[in-house]
C-alpha cells in the first residue's frame, strides 16, 4: 500500500472505531434511560419487553446511521478533493474502493444511507400529515423492508466483481 492509501485506511479505521464507540454509548443510553433503577448491567437488559419498541430503536438507528454517513462524507470530501491537487493521488486512493474490504464497507454504508433517508422521510411525514402511532409503526416496517430489499439488491451489484 502506498502512503496515501495507508493514510486513507487509517482514517477510515479511526472513523469506524469512533462510530462503534458512539453506537455503544447511544444503545447504552437508550437502555439505561428506561431502567435507571435496575441493579443489573445494561448489556444483560437488552431484549427485554420494554426494548421491543421498534420506534425507539429506529431513533437510535437514525442517530447512528446519521453520524456514520456524515463521518464518511467528511473523509469522502477529502479523498475526492485529492483530484484538485493531483489526479494520480486521486487514482491511487480510489483504487482502494475496488478492494473486497471496501466493497463490504460500501454495502453497509448503503444500508445506512437508505435507512436514514427513508426514516427521515417518515419523520417528515409524521410532522406534516400528523399520522397516528400505528401508521407510524407500519411506515417504519416499510422503511426497514425497502432498506433491506434495495440494499441487498445493490450489495449484489457491488460485491459481484469480487465474488466472481
Amino acid at each position: 500500500m502506498s502512503a496515501l492509501q495507508t493514510a486513507f485506511a487509517a482514517a477510515l479505521s479511526v472513523i469506524l472505531v469512533l462510530l462503534t464507540a458512539f453506537t455503544t454509548f447511544t444503545v447504552r443510553s437508550a437502555i439505561v434511560a428506561r431502567d435507571s433503577a435496575a441493579r443489573t448491567g445494561w448489556i444483560s437488559r437488552i431484549g427485554r419487553a420494554s426494548d421491543r419498541d421498534t420506534q425507539r430503536w429506529a431513533f437510535v438507528a437514525h442517530r447512528t446511521t446519521g453520524v456514520a454517513v456524515f463521518a464518511f462524507l467528511l473523509l469522502h470530501v477529502l479523498d475526492v478533493g485529492l483530484y484538485a491537487i493531483s489526479p494520480s493521488w486521486f487514482d491511487d486512493v480510489h483504487t482502494l474502493y475496488s478492494t473486497a474490504a471496501l466493497r463490504v464497507f460500501e454495502c453497509f454504508l448503503l444500508y445506512a444511507i437508505l435507512f436514514h433517508t427513508l426514516n427521515g422521510l417518515r419523520l417528515i411525514a409524521l410532522d406534516l400529515v400528523d399520522i397516528r402511532n400505528a401508521t407510524a409503526r407500519h411506515l417504519l416496517s416499510l422503511c426497514i423492508v425497502v432498506t433491506l430489499l434495495l440494499g441487498t439488491a445493490a450489495a449484489v451489484v457491488i460485491l459481484w466483481p469480487v465474488a466472481t
Binding site: D53, Q55, R56, A58, F59, L123, L126, D127, D130, R132, N133, A136
Partner: peptide
C-alpha cells in the same frame, strides 16, 4: 417523534401529536 409517550399513555391520549 419516538412516540413512546403515545404508546404508553394509559388514557389513550396522543401527546406526540399534541407536541407536533
Amino acid at each position: 417523534s419516538i412516540l413512546g409517550c403515545t404508546a404508553a399513555c394509559p388514557k389513550g391520549l396522543d401527546p406526540s401529536a399534541s407536541i407536533r
